[in-house]
């Protein structure tokens, strides 16, 4: 039953994206943003900065797509009158949300890959991970972590009417604080410890090491932290969604904007 719900929700979200691909704006903006960042790095002729730039813009593409899509995940259902049906259906709402998130993050993975394609095709960058196992693990851990973060956000966004405005604050401020594109020592000294609080920074460090570090070691803790962050996010997201669902039932607000 649970797997069926997850799979059906994932398929439904995929169909929605295929039906209206223009909503997955980040699939189009990621190549442009990558072009902007890579042109700066290319002009500087600092080849060693290409990998952080490519990894960073990949993560930005993935995260931007997820943030913009999850904002309206449940709220759009409410506006369109689907939330009422979802709440009275036997399928648990948190599972439906997680299933749809899986589809969103999978589409986000395309944005992640696009940044690499722009670097390779547009700027002639050689992007071959030196440590493919670590690269694959770090990518998987990143996708899990992003799904967990998306689960929490999708639930929180239902609680705030100003959600769409706050969505914007979850992009560039996080990219700066998390030193997603540049090394952490570029940040002012007081801000450097804050980078460790941003999970995208953990992903950036792992992926940069996987692509360019001569030797890797000691990355297991960071990898586990990403998986744990994702799992905790999924659990928290499910709990919050459940409590939002109870509140909607109690207050009779499933069909109110």
């Amino acid at each position: 039953m649970n797997l069926e719900v997850l799979s059906a929700a994932t398929r439904m979200q995929f169909s929605m994206v295929v039906r209206r691909p223009s909503e997955a704006v980040a699939l189009v903006t990621t190549p442009l943003l990558s072009t902007v960042v890579l042109s700066i790095v290319d002009r500087s002729r600092h080849e060693e900065l290409v990998v952080p730039a490519v990894v960073g813009t990949s993560l930005m593409g993935l995260w931007t797509l997820v943030v913009t899509q999850v904002g309206g995940l449940v709220d759009a259902d409410r506006w369109m009158g689907r939330l009422e049906l979802l709440v009275i259906a036997p399928a648990p709402l948190p599972l439906v949300v997680i299933g749809r998130l899986v589809a969103i993050v999978s589409v986000g993975a395309v944005a992640f890959a696009e940044a690499v394609v722009v670097a390779v095709v547009g700027f002639g960058v050689e992007f071959t991970p030196r440590h493919p196992v670590l690269f694959a693990s770090a990518t998987l851990a990143t996708l899990v972590a992003v799904t967990g973060a998306g689960a929490v956000l999708s639930a929180l966004f239902v609680l705030s009417r100003a959600a769409s405005q706050f969505q914007a604050a979850l992009t560039f401020p996080l990219y700066v604080l998390g030193a997603v594109v540049f090394p952490v020592d570029v940040l002012p000294e007081w801000a450097r410890p804050l980078a460790d609080l941003v999970f995208l920074h953990w992903s950036a460090v792992l992926l940069r090491d996987a692509v360019a570090a001569p030797e890797v070691g000691g990355n297991a803790a960071l990898l586990l932290a990403l998986f744990a962050f994702g799992a905790a996010g999924l659990a928290a997201g499910a709990l919050i969604t459940r409590s939002v669902e109870h509140r909607i039932r109690a207050e009779g607000t499933a069909v109110m904007a």
């Binding site: 700066i40 790095v41 100003a162 706050f166 604050a169 990219y175 594109v181």
Partner: peptide, 20 residues
């Protein structure tokens, strides 16, 4: 939210300048 995002965008690119 919005002004913070806009200012962060400027800081983001300025810090890339510091990197390069």
């Amino acid at each position: 939210a919005w002004a913070l995002r806009m200012v962060a965008q400027v800081v983001f690119f300025a810090l890339i300048g510091r990197m390069v």
